[in-house]
């Protein structure tokens, strides 16, 4: 096919273009007309002559999470210490959906745990709503990678945990059913975690974290262990919840598509020591189409950046 492209420039149709990109071709494919390229640039980078309005709507929203020059060193006083985070600064604005992406071991989980207050930095400061993070709080919901559901408790019981733990279950009982419905688990209220599918279990974990209506929901690879179909389904569910509850979300993911599909901004991290290398604003209108040309260009850009950052694009990132 590429032979045809070389012989007859401009003869490529959109599908071939997509193929080329997914093979990891450079963004400036010869077949692309200058105007097309400009359009894409505009969409991705918000170029001054953008023909498309910026869709990043949070520029003026108040800062919710403020991470300032944070250092985190595991086993700092031992010889085999790990410098997990170095000079990490990040601001997340109210209502925003931010994804953290980066190779394994670059400190994504560490950063998320610091924000949650489950762990503390050696240096630097984290504030949420202007208050220094001094421990965990129900205002910062956390979804663990494997869900970490209570195996002895039913779906209903797991989701109700937050209300019970805060002692408001008596008054707010009705919200359990509400959240069960919101994540589409009607009929499974009395099931135990091992009796529902992986995707359902993650929905339970998300509902459980959301029932306290936290200011921010922190998600650590909530869809990592799911198959592609379930993952896409759950992504839509998550977006739906994000809109409905107008909450702020910070998501850790390995999946570039997932990050682009969901986020307003994507934070790219690099390892050894973990640092933020770049923050990309996703200026794509919602709902987003995964086969949209802008989407695909953005994916290629991010994969290139990750590649530079040390991550070899794995086959799963391709179409």
């Amino acid at each position: 096919m590429s032979a045809v492209a070389e012989g007859q420039p401009g003869a490529l149709d959109k599908q071939d273009e997509l193929d080329a990109l997914s093979r990891g071709a450079k963004r400036r494919v010869p077949s692309l007309s200058p105007t097309q390229a400009e359009l894409i640039d505009a969409a991705i980078y918000g170029a001054p002559n953008a023909q498309r309005a910026s869709v990043y709507a949070f520029a003026d929203a108040p800062v919710l999470i403020d991470v300032k020059h944070v250092e985190r060193i595991y086993n700092a006083d031992s010889e085999n210490y790990t410098h997990a985070l170095h000079d990490v600064s990040l601001q997340v604005r109210e209502g925003e959906f931010v994804s953290l992406i980066g190779p394994s071991g670059c400190g994504k989980t560490t950063l998320l745990r610091l924000i949650a207050g489950l762990d503390f930095p050696e240096e630097g400061q984290l504030t949420v709503s202007g208050k220094v993070v001094a421990g965990s709080s129900y205002e910062r919901g956390y979804v663990f990678q494997q869900g970490a559901l209570y195996p002895w408790s039913t779906v209903e019981g797991n989701i109700a945990t937050g209300l019970k733990a805060r002692g408001v279950y008596g008054k707010q009982k009705h919200r359990v059913a509400e959240f069960i419905e919101m994540v589409g688990l009607q009929g499974f209220e009395k099931s135990f975690p091992h009796e529902v599918s992986g995707g359902m279990a993650q929905r339970v974990a998300i509902a459980r974290a959301l029932i306290n209506e936290p200011k921010v929901l922190l998600l650590d690879e909530p869809m990592g262990a799911l198959d592609a179909f379930t993952r896409i389904e759950l992504q839509d569910k998550l977006l739906d919840l994000w809109k409905r509850l107008s909450s702020t979300m910070v998501l850790v993911t390995h999946d570039v598509d997932e990050a682009i599909y969901l986020s307003d901004r994507i934070v790219i991290m690099t390892p050894r020591p973990g640092q933020i290398s770049e923050t990309i604003t996703v200026e794509l209108g919602r709902p987003r189409a995964r086969n949209d040309i802008d989407f695909i260009h953005l994916r290629t850009t991010i994969l290139e950046k990750l590649h530079l950052a040390g991550e070899k694009p794995e086959p799963e990132f391709r179409i």
Binding site: S136, G141, F144, A148, Y150, T161, A165
Partner: peptide, 22 residues
């Protein structure tokens, strides 16, 4: 597992709740 305690912590649980429910 530590994660089970941490989950309850992020859901607003106190120590006594963790004892009896985790």
């Amino acid at each position: 597992p530590k994660a089970l305690y941490e989950v309850s912590e992020t859901l607003g649980a106190k120590r006594s709740y963790q004892l009896f429910h985790v």
